[in-house]
């Protein structure tokens, strides 16, 4: 995919991050998990900042659901 999106590995220890992410949800109800994910997404969006990159992410993610 062209554009602003970083597609090469950027997280130093992917296994550790993934495990922390899943652990974060442990013991939560579905509603709580949804809210947790929403907060994480908004925080990450603010961290990214770049409007073009965010737009690309939103479009990719939505379009990928149609596959």
């Amino acid at each position: 995919m062209p554009g602003k999106l970083r597609t090469e590995p950027g997280v130093a220890d992917p296994d550790a991050f993934y495990a922390r992410l899943i652990e974060l949800h442990e013991g939560l109800s579905q509603d709580e998990s949804n809210k947790l994910n929403a907060k994480i997404i908004l925080l990450l969006a603010n961290q990214v900042g770049d409007d073009a990159a965010l737009q690309e992410i939103l479009e990719y993610a939505r379009n990928s659901l149609k596959k």
Binding site: M1, R6, T7, E8, P9, G10, V11, P14, D15, F17, Y18, Y60, S64
Partner: peptide
């Protein structure tokens, strides 16, 4: 689609 995700 993305190389980064293969690491996960």
């Amino acid at each position: 689609d993305f190389p980064f995700a293969r690491r996960f």
